[in-house]
Design a protein around this nucleic acid. Structure first.
Lengths: 200, 200
DNA sequence: TTGCCTGTTGGACGATCGTACAACAACGCG
DNA sequence: CGCGTTGTTGTACGATCGTCCAACAGGCAA
């Protein structure tokens, strides 16, 4: 009547559980507390599995970052899809979704910061960041184009909106009491007004 | 004729040299590489001095963050002072100074990231961040008021400008090849135009 | 049921971490 | 010039880090 000492899992499922445990540990203890042992304990597995599936702790953090980025992308897609067909509504949904759950979240921020702290020392991770940032901006450019932003201004507009949203999102996560998600959304909406209005 | 084994220094001078060495190590090796030994080696002193002056590595990182923040404040003040008396020019100088040396700098970013990664786990450092952020925003509010932004809009405008500047600064440091300081300055100037123009 | 395959365990290993402290030496004072 | 103060050194210490790997056992095929 004794319970099994462990159970096997699909490789992808096991990888995912380790990634999610990594994100939880990063959120709870910060970058310094995210050790192989702490993550394995959180996932309920042996420390050796981290090496078996990812080869090292840095690769696990990078995978966690990629996974979290995919989650953000999915949440943004869902917000855009729920906004209907009007281009402006879709753009606004894309932008303001960053200020609510599940994107404005301490666990996400902790993962982001942990990844940023690795970029300084590792060029390959810098390339991963560049690729993910480029993907975000490309999607924003499409939405802006749909709202009538002319092609020559597209690049600058996308950089500007990305920066504003990132800055608001960052401060919203770092000190949630400073301003509210509604305030952030209002600021972003006004910025889009100025960007899209037919003057100039 | 042998050289002295070591030389004494003013406590403040020694503290400063350790802080500067900490910033250099953070920039070169990232958050994970900033150990007591590495910092002491960079500063050319014994590892024991870190404990003697700061009591621990976390306090040294916090002091480095505070010092770097003061450097940024000084650079911003200098930029504003050099801009003359016109309110709009002063505001613009304050904003665009973030995109050039010495503010747009990998060493600064590395210090910021290392500090952010500690905030998750330590409430006292979160308060230090809130205080420094509030100081930045208060100065920005004064400059915006000088440009005619009405008092009820002041808070929102300052939050918006801070977010935009932070987002541009962050991406400029993380991947310098993505866009230039001139582009960032142009984006920020247009944003100020929209914010200050008498319409609405 | 039996036996093989392999996902999983858990501890060993050397390296490195932050901290503490006794010994040392530079500098100022008498 | 000699002495005391104290800034500074260098190391020892225990803890914890990432990695590695031999042994174990769950699950499937025969």
């Amino acid at each position: 009547m004794k319970s099994p000492a462990f159970s096997r899992a699909e490789p992808d499922a096991r990888r995912l559980s380790l990634i999610e445990a990594c994100a939880r540990v990063l959120a709870a203890a910060g970058s310094a507390g995210a050790s192989v042992r702490a993550i394995a304990l959180e996932a309920g597995v042996s420390p050796g599995l981290v090496g078996h599936y990812f080869g090292g702790i840095d690769a696990l953090v990078a995978a966690t970052y990629a996974h979290v980025d995919a989650q953000v992308s999915d949440a943004l897609d869902a917000a855009v899809a729920a906004a209907g067909a009007a281009p402006r509504a879709r753009l606004e949904a894309f932008v303001t979704a960053s200020f609510d759950a599940p994107i404005a979240d301490r666990a996400l921020l902790a993962t982001w910061i942990a990844f940023w702290s690795l970029i300084t020392a590792r060029a390959d991770l810098a390339r991963q960041h560049d690729a993910q940032y480029a993907g975000y901006r490309a999607r924003l450019e499409r939405l802006l184009a749909g709202c009538g932003v002319p092609e020559p201004d597209l690049r600058r507009a996308a950089i500007a909106v990305t920066a504003l949203v990132d800055g608001l999102w960052l401060e919203l996560c770092l000190s949630p009491g400073c301003f509210s998600a509604e305030e952030a959304g209002g600021i972003a909406r006004r910025f889009l007004d100025a960007l899209i209005s037919p003057d100039r």
